[in-house]
Amino acid sequence: MTGAGNDFIMFDNRNGKIKNPVELAKWVCDRHFGVGADGIILIEKSEIADFKMVYFNSDGSFGGMCGNGGRCVAKLAFILGISKGKTTFEANGKLYHAEIIDEQKVKLFLPFPQTKKLNLKLKLGKKFFKAHFIDTGAPHLVVFTDENSIKNIEKINVNQLGRKLRYHPKFENGTNVNFVAVIDNETIRMRTYERGVEGETLACGTGSVASAIASVEIKNLNLPLKVKTSSGEILTIFYDRNKSQPEFVSLEGSVKIICEGTLNYET
Rank of each mutant, 00 (worst) to 15 (best):
M1N: 14
N6P: 08
N6T: 11
I9E: 08
M10E: 07
F11I: 05
R14H: 08
N15H: 04
G16C: 03
K17Q: 11
N20V: 03
V22A: 07
L24M: 15
K26Q: 12
D30E: 03
K45Q: 15
A49K: 04
M53V: 05
F56I: 01
N57T: 00
G60M: 08
G60N: 03
F62T: 02
F62S: 05
F62C: 02
G67E: 05
N68E: 08
R71N: 09
K75L: 12
L76T: 14
I82F: 13
S83V: 04
K86V: 13
T87E: 09
T87G: 05
N92K: 06
K94T: 02
Y96H: 11
A98F: 08
E99W: 12
I100E: 03
I100L: 14
I101T: 10
D102R: 10
D102T: 09
E103K: 08
V106S: 11
P111M: 01
F112N: 00
F112S: 01
P113L: 01
Q114W: 01
T115R: 08
N119M: 11
L120Y: 13
K121E: 15
K123A: 15
L124H: 12
L124I: 15
F128Y: 14
H132F: 09
H132C: 13
T136C: 08
S149R: 14
I150Y: 06
I153K: 10
E154T: 14
E154H: 15
V158R: 02
Q160E: 13
R163W: 07
Y167V: 07
H168Y: 09
P169T: 11
E172N: 05
N173H: 06
N176S: 00
N176G: 00
N178A: 06
A181E: 11
N185T: 13
N185V: 11
E186H: 15
E186C: 14
T187D: 14
I188K: 15
R189E: 12
M190K: 07
G196Q: 02
T201Q: 09
A203Q: 12
C204V: 08
T206E: 03
G207L: 03
G207H: 02
S208K: 04
V209I: 13
S211I: 07
I213N: 05
S215K: 13
P224Y: 15
P224R: 09
L225Y: 10
K226P: 03
K228R: 06
S231C: 04
E233A: 13
E233T: 06
I237S: 10
D240I: 02
D240T: 01
N242S: 14
N242M: 07
V249M: 00
S250C: 07
S250I: 05
K256A: 15
Y265K: 00
